[in-house]
Each structure stands twice: as C-alpha cells, then as structure tokens.
Amino acid sequence: MTTESRVLTFPALDSLAAAAHLRAELALDVDPDDLVRDLTAGTRHGYVIVETRASEAFASARIPGAINLPYRDMTPESDSDLVYVCYCESIHCNAATKGALKLAELGFKVKRLSGGITAWRVAGYPVDQDAPAPTPTSTPRCAC
C-alpha cells in the first residue's frame, strides 16, 4: 500500500518562481534581528518604525525610536520617501498588516516587522515605556 506524500501534494515551484516569491516576501518583512542591528549601528536613514496599535499599547512598551500611528488614524500627510516598518503585538494581531495596507493604499512604501513587539521582546531587545504594562486578563487583547 503506497501513500501519497502530503508534502508534495502541491509540487514545489521551479527555482526562478521560488526565488521571485521569496524575494517578494523579504521585500515586505523585516526580522527583529536585522532591525536591532540597524538601530545599534545607527543606520536609521530611509525608514521609520511605526507602532500601529493604540496609544495605550505604545505607552506600555515600544521599540526605541518608534512613532505611534494607529492604523485607524493614518492619513496621506506622511513622508512618502521613507519606508514605513509597521509592527503590532504579535503574529496573532493584524494591526501591522492593516496599517501597512492602509499606508500602501495611500502610496507609501511599507514593510512589517515579523512577530511584532512580542518577537522583539522574546529576543531580549530593549523597549521604551511610559506606563507599566497592563495586568494580563483572561481575554487577550492586541490593543489595536
């Protein structure tokens, strides 16, 4: 009795198509390690880090140097020469995707930070904060 491979149910792309797809993914995503290396090296030209969650979340923890621009409040009056690196809580929150989409629809260049501020903190990278983090509740909230 032979079983079909679930892995190969959908054939792999040819190498050129795979390279194009993966290049497109990398054009949209930044990982925390690359971002912290830029920040540590002082390489801050050409992009801005954007916290897309609500101001309460921004106050409780944010990536150093980030600005707060909740996706619901985005307008066309931004600098179109910059790349906007959007982040939110985690892979379980889509505020960064909503913010990046809104900015892209307004004509801006965008990327998303993989894993959001949760991945940033798990990696041990520093955060700025104005207020203590909210007490966890039984109902998770992404503050978006």
Rank of each mutant, 00 (worst) to 15 (best):
S5R: 10
L8D: 12
T9A: 14
F10M: 07
S15M: 11
A17L: 12
A20M: 11
L22C: 07
R23H: 11
A24K: 15
E25K: 13
E25V: 14
A27I: 08
A27H: 06
A27Y: 05
L28F: 13
L28D: 09
D29L: 13
V30I: 14
D31Q: 12
D33A: 15
D34N: 11
D34F: 11
L35F: 06
L35N: 00
L35M: 13
V36Q: 14
R37K: 15
R37S: 10
T40K: 14
A41P: 04
H45G: 07
I49D: 00
V50K: 01
V50D: 00
E51Q: 12
E51Y: 06
R53K: 13
R53E: 05
R53D: 04
S55L: 14
S55A: 14
E56C: 05
E56K: 10
A57V: 07
F58M: 03
I63M: 03
I63N: 00
P64C: 07
G65W: 07
G65R: 08
A66L: 08
N68D: 05
P70S: 09
Y71Q: 04
D73E: 15
D73K: 10
D73I: 06
M74E: 03
M74K: 01
T75Q: 13
P76G: 11
P76H: 08
E77Q: 13
E77D: 15
S78I: 10
D79V: 09
S80R: 15
S80N: 13
S80D: 12
V85Q: 00
C86Y: 02
Y87F: 15
C88S: 05
E89K: 04
H92F: 13
C93N: 02
C93Y: 00
N94M: 08
A96F: 03
T97N: 06
K98S: 12
K98I: 09
G99R: 02
A100L: 04
L101G: 04
K102M: 04
K102E: 03
A104S: 14
E105D: 13
L106M: 15
G107E: 09
F108H: 13
V110Q: 01
V110D: 01
K111P: 01
L113N: 01
S114F: 06
G115C: 05
A119P: 01
W120C: 02
W120P: 00
V122Y: 10
V122E: 14
A123D: 12
G124R: 04
